[in-house]
């Protein structure tokens, strides 16, 4: 029964991977920008960064997705559904990336920053050369969790017309009335992603472990 639908389900799995692969880097970049705003010496930027995090973290992901999908066209911007969802996931998880970076930065010894400032590094270089690389060590694990959540969050595509794993599974179930089998297959798909991410996180953590 599965073999007849393997193509669709595999296609859905691929779409889930693609969604994740596009949305996570976006969340990283956006989250970095917001985090830098939040720790910058410029007050309006700090306020804007905080506003972003508060606003996004208090909105359901679905609301953001629907806003982008049905709100943007009314503003004259029609982006394909796939990219709407990528944008929604990116915007949403950027808030969590931002907070992860912030707590990673808090974990860096103050003296490291003072030393960097004392040799005359400008703010930008303090952040890029000293703060972020060290904060990254404390961030690997939570960032891995965010990556997994992006993959799981992409299941929202099923509600907004993106043919990802969950939607294909639902269609399969609709045709065959095999809910347990169908969702077990989907669960396996997400599990594979989860395990792969956990493996990579362990590898990266071993690599960046610092002697103190």
């Amino acid at each position: 029964m599965l073999s007849g639908h393997a193509g669709e389900i595999l296609g859905g799995f691929t779409t889930t991977l693609l969604l994740t692969a596009c949305a996570f880097p976006l969340a990283l970049v956006l989250g970095c920008v917001v985090a830098i705003c939040r720790i910058s010496p410029v007050r309006p930027l700090r306020i804007a960064g905080r506003l972003y995090v508060d606003l996004v973290r208090n909105s359901p992901l679905l609301l953001i997705a629907v806003l982008l999908i049905f709100g943007l066209p009314d503003a004259g911007v029609l982006i394909p559904l796939f990219w709407c969802l990528v944008l929604a996931l990116g915007v949403y998880f950027a808030a969590y990336v931002c907070e992860t970076i912030r707590s990673g930065i808090r974990a860096v010894d103050r003296g490291q920053v003072e030393a960097a400032r004392a040799i005359g590094l400008p703010f930008r270089r303090v952040v890029l050369d000293v703060l972020l690389p060290q904060a990254f060590r404390a961030m690997v694990q939570p960032l891995g969790t965010i990556l997994i959540n992006v993959a799981l969050g992409s299941a929202l595509g099923a509600a907004v017309g993106v043919d990802e794993l969950t939607l294909e599974t639902r269609s399969f179930n609709l045709e065959t009335a095999e809910p347990i089998l169908a969702f077990a297959v989907a669960a396996c798909g997400y599990l594979v992603i989860n395990l792969a991410v956990s493996g990579v996180v362990r590898l990266v953590e071993r690599k960046v472990r610092v002697l103190r």
Binding site: D109, G111, R117, A118, G120, V130
Partner: peptide, 18 residues
């Protein structure tokens, strides 16, 4: 920042970039 480059500092806890 430019001025600090001209004023070196050595800390009690070394603060080498780990």
């Amino acid at each position: 920042a430019r001025l600090r480059a001209d004023v070196g500092m050595v800390f009690q806890s070394f603060n080498l970039f780990a």
